Simulated assay, not measured.
Amino acid sequence: MPIRTNRGRTAVYRRLWGWPLRSPRHLMGTLVFLAILVTALGVVLPKVVGKPQAKASPTTGTTTSVTATPSGLAAPVPTSNLPTRLATPLATPTPTTPNGDAIRVAKAWAAAWVNHPAGITSEQWLAQLKPLTTEEYLPVMSTVDPANIPATKVTGEPVPGTSYPKSLQVTIPTDGPKLAITVVSTNAGWRVADYDQAS
């Protein structure tokens, strides 16, 4: 076992590292000294390294300018030329007179919806509805099993409901439940975008 003496480099290191642990006063003095050292480095290093240059962000269209804070540190301040509010408020659609083409599409769609003779496949039934249905609503309709549809014929004329320039609600009676059909104006013309059983 080596003999420890008070001489040599190891003894000096041992005395330096052991000094803060000799008493609570030494420990507090060491912590205060380290806090002052870290703070001084935080103030001095940015001045030595230099200030960052202002850059333009190519992806967001914003620029970053650099301003000096009271402590002398450079702080980036983001600026933007994008508007913070809508230039014009969104307009609320106003009710209009029901469109005759929209009513005809709703009636034809209801006639195709109730047309499901025994043995018809889901693909054949969906093919009848496809020309009258929006592309977005076709995947929803593909989940319907025509054998579960309780109606077999349309029993009355369409009754227009809420009408806007680009959409119309139509109720159509059948020998099963009444159909509440939503028809919307698309690039391809009026198409059914939704339906439900009316009360």
Score class of each variant (00 low, 15 high):
M1L: 10
I3G: 03
N6D: 11
R9K: 08
R9A: 13
T10W: 05
T10F: 06
T10L: 10
T10K: 06
R15T: 13
P20V: 12
R22D: 06
S23Y: 08
S23N: 11
S23E: 05
P24V: 14
G29I: 07
L31N: 08
V32P: 00
V32D: 01
F33K: 04
I36Q: 04
V38E: 03
T39D: 02
L41A: 15
L41Q: 09
L41S: 11
V44R: 09
L45I: 15
P46N: 08
K51L: 06
A54W: 05
A54I: 03
T60D: 03
T63D: 07
V66Q: 09
V66I: 15
T69Q: 11
P70Q: 02
G72K: 00
L73R: 14
L73A: 14
P76I: 11
V77I: 12
N81A: 15
P83S: 12
T84F: 08
T84S: 09
R85A: 14
R85N: 09
L86N: 09
L86Y: 10
A87H: 07
P89R: 13
L90W: 11
A91Q: 15
A91K: 12
P93T: 08
P93F: 02
T94G: 01
T94Y: 02
P95E: 11
P95T: 14
T97S: 13
T97Q: 13
P98E: 04
P98A: 05
N99I: 01
G100A: 15
D101A: 15
A102D: 06
I103D: 02
I103C: 00
R104M: 07
R104F: 01
V105N: 02
V105R: 07
A106S: 13
A108V: 00
A108R: 13
W113R: 06
W113H: 14
V114Q: 01
H116I: 02
H116Y: 02
P117R: 05
G119N: 10
T121N: 05
S122Y: 00
E123Y: 03
W125V: 14
A127H: 09
Q128T: 12
Q128I: 01
E135P: 00
Y137L: 07
M141A: 10
M141N: 13
T143S: 08
P146C: 11
P146T: 14
A147R: 11
A147Q: 09
N148Q: 13
N148V: 10
P150M: 04
A151F: 03
T152W: 03
K153P: 02
V154C: 01
V154I: 13
T155R: 03
P158Q: 01
P158D: 05
V159K: 09
P160S: 07
T162E: 10
P165D: 05
K166P: 00
K166F: 07
K166A: 08
S167I: 06
L168E: 15
L168A: 01
L168K: 01
L168F: 01
Q169G: 08
T174R: 06
G176Q: 04
K178L: 10
V184Y: 00
V184H: 00
S185W: 05
T186I: 03
T186W: 01
N187D: 15
R191D: 02
V192D: 03
D194M: 05
D194V: 00
Y195G: 00
Y195A: 06
Q197I: 12
S199I: 04
S199K: 14
